[in-house]
């Protein structure tokens, strides 16, 4: 009863899958955030960066191959992450068929109790974000130009509703990252009381720096720093 096939069937195996796929996504959002900051270098630089994501690895890789490789990895990761989350949540709901009339929390923080809801919010946000800046659906972006991402960002964030959705998405991301980052180490067995404060600190850093980096772009547009 050990091995590749049975391990993911255990509750702990599913959590390990969530930790590993979560780490992949932390790496992705960190890189994504860093790339977004190139907005501050101007239209030419930012658009060249966007094009560079597609020409990366040439001549060994064809146009767009590296980008698609990353996309395939993160799509697989998110599918596994959601599969593990949903199967565990179903199990957890069944584990207490009769609820308490009164149940006081002694320690749990909002981040740890809202992981599944935050996860759903982030998923919905990502779909909106893709429709907004990747697919450029006319229903969500008023003037989408496939070859001018700098323009798309500026125009996209001039809409207050769009900016509001991004702010909510980033709050959900911050909470998810805070519990997720610490939880990852606990789940794979790398946490103990002597590392706990350090890992909590790391979780704070990740949960603050990544969303903060992201939020500067829509705020920059609203405040007129980016135009």
């Amino acid at each position: 009863m050990v091995g590749v096939m049975s391990f993911p069937r255990t509750t702990i195996g599913k959590k390990v899958i969530m930790a590993v796929t979560g780490l992949i996504w932390i790496g992705f959002v960190a890189g994504h955030m860093f790339g977004n900051l190139k907005m501050y270098l101007g239209a030419e630089h930012f658009n060249a960066y966007a094009e560079g994501l597609r020409t990366f690895g040439e001549p060994f890789l064809a146009y767009g191959q590296a980008l698609w490789l990353v996309r395939i990895i993160i799509i697989l990761a998110v599918v596994l992450h959601i599969w593990a989350a949903v199967t565990l949540k179903m199990r957890n709901l069944q584990a207490r068929p009769v609820r308490y009339s009164k149940h006081r929390k002694l320690h749990a923080d909002a981040a740890s109790l809202s992981m599944i809801y935050g996860g759903v919010a982030i998923l919905l946000f990502v779909l909106y974000h893709l429709a907004h800046f990747t697919w450029g659906l006319s229903a969500v972006h008023p003037d989408f130009r496939p070859t001018d991402p700098y323009h798309n960002v500026i125009v996209g964030f001039q809409n207050r509703l769009a900016t509001g959705i991004y702010l909510i998405g980033l709050v959900a991301l911050a909470l998810h990252l805070y519990h997720g980052t610490w939880s990852m180490f606990q789940t794979v067995g790398l946490n103990n009381k002597s590392y706990d404060k350090l890992l909590r600190g790391l979780a704070w850093l990740v949960a603050i720096i990544i969303p903060l980096g992201f939020v500067t772009v829509p705020l920059g547009v609203i405040l007129g720093i980016l135009s």
Binding site: T11, N92, R96, K105, S112, W182, V188, N191
Partner: peptide, 28 residues
């Protein structure tokens, strides 16, 4: 039984102060 979401409620309620460290140990 349900799965662990690392909320820390168990450790806080344990009358014998059993540490979450042992869950990490079991995972590894």
């Amino acid at each position: 039984f349900g799965g662990c979401t690392n909320t820390g409620e168990c450790e806080a309620a344990c009358p014998k102060e059993i540490s979450l460290d042992f869950i990490a140990r079991m995972n590894s």
